[in-house]
Design a protein around this nucleic acid. Structure first.
Length: 583
RNA sequence: CGGGAUGUAGCGCAGUUUGGCAGCGCGCUUCGUUCGGGACGAAGAGGCCGGAGGUUCAAAUCCUCUCAUCCCGACCA
């Protein structure tokens, strides 16, 4: 491959585009890789297209290597497939919907579980056919409420999704592990910095699930990890370690007058000042009322959640814990319907009598004592002991996770970071197989319900994440396998530099390298250097002022090293540099 | 959906307060010079000032409505 910049469809920008904030967006636009068409929708210019294809190629190679087979489904899908699994309604506004000329409903696929399941059902019917894993690399469409950060989070994006079909749970585990291994290879080859974290499978159903997160400050997922034992989980999947139960004696419950103390802060100050209690917010138990609706049901359950007063509720964690139920905040008119619940002064002592389910933070173990509401306006109770004065119906992960919280595995303080999801693997189970009645006929003549795994890689997102992780103040710095070329040959000067540069570029191309050649006659050296740095091809060879002394300059865009080398050796030195890295 | 900001040439922006010829930089075209850090000179091309309505002798500028985009939040494989 030899790309000549004299004719390449490329225009770099000297200034940052006004609508770009994050580095990947800024640089991909400035370097002429992508252009915005509409919010969250981008076009890929020639160099960007090459990078995108390189990522897709790496993904494809590793998927093929693990034995998955590639198919391609349409992006435009009829409603009926999504009707069967209930997702036509469940997906809500995020689904791009459209009608054909006959007014029939269609959608642009946000993901393709239904199609994969249906395809397998149509072709395979014997247990002898299984297991099988299929994948596709397809453009997906999601009408996100707020697309942002350029390519990082668009409404149209390229994703690899694969699905494994197994006869039993052991088979599913094997398929899952194979994907895990393949993903490690993929993200390593992509030159990414990433972490594998425990995740919730959420509303999709299923059990084991892990996310591949690329830590970046612009990330939108919060995750915790432990430097000592390697435990890592996203915030939704973090499991709070419970302290040991307390079995000693506790003082008797005591009701306190606490006028005008609807918040934890006012309560703590008041009881310390007026009742001589030296407590902190962590000694209080705050009780949050939510109503939980289950999809397909009209009635909402009233649920109370008790968490230590020094912590906020993390709504994402709460939702994940209640999925597929959907929590909503208790409003004033909800309180009006429950006269037993005194807003701001709710305590768990009476909940069993009211018949309201009560779930607590895992830190609220038997024998712990709390300052909490006394279920009367202006009154709280102290020495309220779990297991004695109230008995929770269970625990729930609803409290925020904080840096320094103990690791659930080894107890060391946890670190909190932000990351972007670049891959997700999970054991789906039988949700979609059930919906499609996907069975294999077993050796005993009885049907076996298939169990599935679902695995995704954000291909276009990966391009942005690499840009996010690999750039400097001058521009992009692509890993070699992803870069639009192996080497950027730059000819500067008014003598015959460009001719010589062209000759060397052709020689390198003949040797099998992918070459970008700056043979523009009008651009000044400064422009060519700036463009070279912006574009971020890992190896740069400059044929310029040194030509008269028979010298060229070899630059390493990654490490920044520069070296004058004899022109005669230029091609072989470039080859050596490229091969050293590929090895 | 809530909060904030912005819409003026391909890109980045000034001009709006206080109404009076549509501007600057980059890019683009032509000629000449220059050629290792986004060169210089000269001459050019390029605009429905987001849209609609209103006020006024006169509107990019003031008023009303509207559309769009970006950022933060909510939401999100």
């Amino acid at each position: 491959m030899l790309l000549r910049m004299s004719t390449l469809f490329l225009r770099t920008l000297r200034e940052d585009p006004a609508d770009a904030e994050v580095p990947s967006h800024r640089l991909l636009v400035r370097a002429g890789y992508v252009r915005r068409v509409a919010p969250g929708i981008y076009s890929w210019l020639p160099l960007g297209k090459i990078v995108l294809e390189n990522v897709a190629r790496i993904v494809r190679e590793e998927m093929d290597r693990m034995g998955a087979q590639e198919v391609l489904f349409p992006a435009l899908l009829p409603r009926e497939y999504y009707e069967k699994t209930g997702r036509w309604t469940e997906y809500g506004d995020t689904l791009f919907r459209l009608k054909d000329r006959k007014k029939a409903d269609y959608l642009l696929g946000p993901t393709h579980e239904e199609l994969f399941t249906d395809m397998v059902k149509g072709e395979y019917s014997s247990y002898k056919d299984y297991p099988v894993t299929l994948y596709q690399i397809q453009t997906k469409y999601r009408d996100e409420a707020r697309p942002r950060a350029g390519i990082l989070r668009g409404r149209e994006f390229v994703m690899k999704d694969s699905y494994s079909f197994d006869l039993d749970d052991d088979g599913l585990k094997r398929s899952y592990e194979q994907h895990r291994d393949a993903y490690i290879k993929i993200f390593d080859r992509l030159g990414m910095n990433y972490k594998i974290v425990f995740a919730m499978s959420g509303a999709m159903g299923g059990s084991a699930s892990e996310e591949f997160l690329a830590p970046t400050p612009t990330g939108e997922d919060t995750f915790v990890h432990c430097r000592d034992c390697g435990y890592a989980a996203n915030a939704e999947a973090f499991v709070t370690p419970a302290p040991p139960a307390y079995t000693g004696e506790r003082a008797a419950q005591q009701v306190l007058d606490t006028p005008d103390t609807p918040t934890i802060e006012t309560l703590v100050d008041f009881v310390n000042a007026n009742h001589g209690l030296g407590i902190t917010a962590a000694d209080t138990l705050k009780n949050l009322v939510v109503k939980v609706t289950t999809p397909g049901s009209d009635t909402a359950e009233t649920l109370i959640i008790g968490i230590p007063g020094d912590r906020e509720v993390d709504f994402k964690r709460l939702e994940a814990a209640l999925a597929p139920g959907e929590p909503a905040i208790f409003e004033a008119d909800d309180f009006a319907r429950h006269p037993g619940l005194v807003r701001g002064y709710i305590g768990p002592q009476i909940l069993a009598d009211l018949g309201i389910r009560y779930l607590v933070d895992p830190r609220v173990v038997s024998g712990t004592e709390w300052v909490t509401g006394a279920n009367e306006p202006g009154k709280h109770a102290a020495h309220v002991v779990a297991g004695r004065d109230f008995t929770p119906d269970g625990t729930i992960e609803a409290a925020e996770v904080r840096a320094g919280d103990p690791c659930p595995v080894c107890g060391q303080p946890l670190i909190i970071d932000r990351g972007i999801e670049i891959g997700h693997i999970f054991q789906l189970g039988r949700k979609y197989a059930d919906a499609a009645e996907l069975d294999a006929l077993g050796p005993d003549g009885k049907p076996i319900r298939i169990t599935m795994g679902s695995y995704g890689v954000g291909v276009s997102r990966a391009v942005a994440v690499i840009a996010e992780q690999r750039h400097d103040e001058l521009g992009l710095v692509w890993p070699r396998e992803v870069a639009p070329a192996d080497v950027h040959v730059v000819g500067t000067g008014k003598e015959n530099q460009i001719e010589v540069a062209t000759r060397i570029a052709e020689e390198l191309e003949a040797a099998g390298l992918r070459v970008l050649l700056d043979d523009r006659s009008s651009a000044s050296p400064g422009v060519k250097f700036k463009d070279s740095e912006l574009l971020g091809i890992p190896t740069v060879l400059i044929v310029g002022r040194g030509l008269s002394q028979g010298l060229a300059e070899l630059r390493d865009r990654v490490g920044g090293a520069r070296e004058e080398i004899p022109l005669a050796e230029a091609a072989s030195r470039v080859l050596a540099a490229v091969q050293a890295e590929s090895a």
